[in-house]
Design a protein around this nucleic acid. Sequence first.
DNA 1: TTGGAATGTCAACAAGGCTGACATATGATG
DNA 2: CATCATATGTCAGCCTTGTTGACATTCCAA
Lengths: 165, 165
Amino acid sequence: MGDISGGDALLFLTDEQLRQGIEAMFFAYRGFTAAPDAILEGLDYGRAHHRALHFIARVPGMNVKRLLEILGVTKQSLNRVLRTLIEDGLVESRVGTSDKRERHLFLTETGADLESRLSDAQRRQMRAAYRHAGPDAVAGFRQVLEAMMEPGMRATYASLRATGA
Amino acid sequence: MGDISGGDALLFLTDEQLRQGIEAMFFAYRGFTAAPDAILEGLDYGRAHHRALHFIARVPGMNVKRLLEILGVTKQSLNRVLRTLIEDGLVESRVGTSDKRERHLFLTETGADLESRLSDAQRRQMRAAYRHAGPDAVAGFRQVLEAMMEPGMRATYASLRATGA
DNA sequence: TTGGAATGTCAACAAGGCTGACATATGATG
DNA sequence: CATCATATGTCAGCCTTGTTGACATTCCAA
């Protein structure tokens, strides 16, 4: 990391290298979503439901506003998804304790079950790729992805990482 | 690369590490598409048009079947996109020479212009991330992405890479 | 000549984005 | 207390981009 001095060290920044990276992102993202998509098929849910379940599982009690920021969609769009999850008993929405305008979101047992199934499938997929590429490659992978994020999302990502562990 | 022996070397495969990688992919993909999306906004085209333009630029004269395989959508879905691009004079469709059932796709000058603008924007974004992360990280990034692809797409990706350079 | 492949097209539908407008409850502030 | 701002929900309508199914055309190949 750090500065690049010059000469051949810059070969990884050629247009051709960048184009290959772009295509790799495109094809890999399909593989990335394939496993959970396969589970969701047949259920009445889609990727949007998966994403909501993921982050509610990740930060139990998260309020709607925060979830909107993370997902980067409008409240109308999220609401459609959230409503079905609540109606179907996968998500519980509790009135905030300190600020009663807020709704805090939690997974029910049923919701946690589905989230686990989706998570497990996606992690299996990811684990296979990681194991194949090895720890050094994974470190590089994470560095490049982090550099690709928009600043706001990088901050969000970091904050989730901090909450983790 | 190669086999992992054991012990601490496997720490990069913990559920928490995998979860972070999953979230990194999610957030990074938004950054990845942001630059071309910004250009497309206002034009009458969307991401689907961008993808078609990209691969037609990449392999001039590609036929429809091949493009369908690469994009992974139905012919009806692609056709809607392709039709507008042809009508608007961005793409030219020529009857195949050896097999006259096939249509071979080419960018017109106008099409190549838009494709360049989109490509340049996305490469700029990618270049910044690459430069920030450095060549070793980029190598790892590419390895993990390739391992994440579904086998069919990995073959397609490799064949495009071979055509490249 | 006949079957199958490549392509195009019509129709209908669904998911999941978006905007705009409006209602409600509650917190915060002068 | 009055007022304004915030958090949330909801209705209506629209767009893009994916899907299936059906059908026509053209043309290669056995």
